[in-house]
């Protein structure tokens, strides 16, 4: 027996009863979206991940999507632990493979509103090839990339978004590789929705997440996030608070900016962190296109619709 839709997460009665039964009545409103028995989380003080997860859950709550119709898929990393805290069907898979796993999940059940929540290393180093192909196919799910400019979980090594010059545990003399400009990668690969925010822009972030949840097609949101432990302390942003202040003072909202022109350049003191929703367009999804072709094929084969 399927029990789909039988639990109404939004009914105050249901929430009240559930939380009373679980002894959590009167807690934070988002607690009902979290696996409470897994809290406290493992993230460091000052880490941006809490803000981003909170924003995602708020967006989910604001949208009319029932949590039981929602899935979260994460790869490996500090960001990858998000899947373990959300009280929806959630998958913590192998390093780099969140996107192909989500592709199977979404194509397997088109009703699941699916979000990939993972880190810059997971999505763009080991998983980079999957990212560009999922965007190209325009598979209908959202990808949230927590860009903390390093491999937080493994001890602050450099990754594909680490700025040139930054000192990390694997660039002790300063980085020298060119980093990705993620919005340009996403837009160039075919994403129908591309945004970048920082953990300072919480309201905008929630709005963006909501738009992505409601939009058909491959949506990409990059969120710049403090990692005081792995990255910040090595580049002069010792605490989460200092990083937030840095984001506040150095960001510029430019919704119509060309993604190819929003590369981050911390070497240049004049340069700004350009944030905004850069791309929001309509295009047929993978499933739309496949449905059309398969429908035609069935006509030719003279089998039922």
């Amino acid at each position: 027996m399927s029990i789909r839709k039988s639990r109404d997460w939004f009914s105050p009665d249901y929430m009240e009863q559930k939380s009373k039964k679980e002894g959590t009545y009167g807690l934070h409103p988002l607690d009902n979206y979290l696996r409470k028995d897994r809290i406290p989380h493992i993230w460091c003080p000052g880490c941006g991940l809490g803000i981003i997860l909170n924003s995602y859950l708020r967006a989910l709550k604001n949208s009319d999507i029932a949590p039981e119709d929602t899935a979260v898929v994460s790869g490996i990393g500090c960001s990858g632990r998000a899947a373990g805290y959300v009280d929806v069907d959630s998958f913590h898979v192998t390093h780099g493979r969140a996107i192909p796993f989500a592709t199977g999940l979404k194509v397997g059940n088109k009703d699941l509103v699916t979000t990939v929540f993972s880190g810059d290393g997971d999505l763009f180093a080991i998983g980079g090839n999957h990212f560009i192909h999922a965007a190209r196919r325009n598979v209908d799910f959202n990808v949230i990339c927590v860009n903390n400019f390093n491999y937080g979980m493994t001890g602050g090594q450099a990754g594909p978004t680490t700025p040139q010059g930054a000192k990390t545990s694997t660039t002790p003399w300063g980085g020298f590789e060119q980093p990705f400009n993620l919005p340009a990668v996403a837009a160039g690969s075919g994403a129908v929705y591309v945004a970048r925010w920082t953990t300072y822009h919480v309201e905008k972030l929630i709005e963006s997440f909501e738009e992505a949840l409601n939009k058909q097609g491959f949506c990409f949101i990059e969120v710049l996030s403090p990692c005081p432990t792995g990255y910040g302390r090595k580049v002069g942003l010792k605490t989460g608070k200092e990083t937030m202040k840095y984001y506040k003072e150095n960001s510029e909202i430019k919704p119509d900016a060309d993604p190819s022109e929003v590369a981050l350049d911390p070497e240049d003191p004049e340069s700004k962190i350009i944030v905004g929703n850069f791309v929001d367009r309509e295009a047929p999804t993978y499933q739309d296109e496949r449905g059309k072709v398969f429908g035609e094929a069935r006509k030719k084969m003279e089998v039922d619709g």
């Binding site: 898929v73 069907d89 998958f91 898979v93 192998t94 780099g96 493979r97 996107i99 192909p100 796993f101 989500a102 592709t103 199977g104 999940l105 979404k106 194509v107 397997g108 059940n109 699941l112 090839n129 999957h130 192909h133 196919r137 496949r290």
Partner: peptide
């Protein structure tokens, strides 16, 4: 549903996802 994936890493990851979606994959 079939997908010609970008590599075999993706092929197997996606059949695991599809299985959790309830499909025989």
């Amino acid at each position: 549903s079939y997908l010609q994936m970008e590599d075999e890493l993706a092929s197997i990851a996606s059949i695991l996802g599809a299985s959790w979606a309830g499909r025989k994959a």
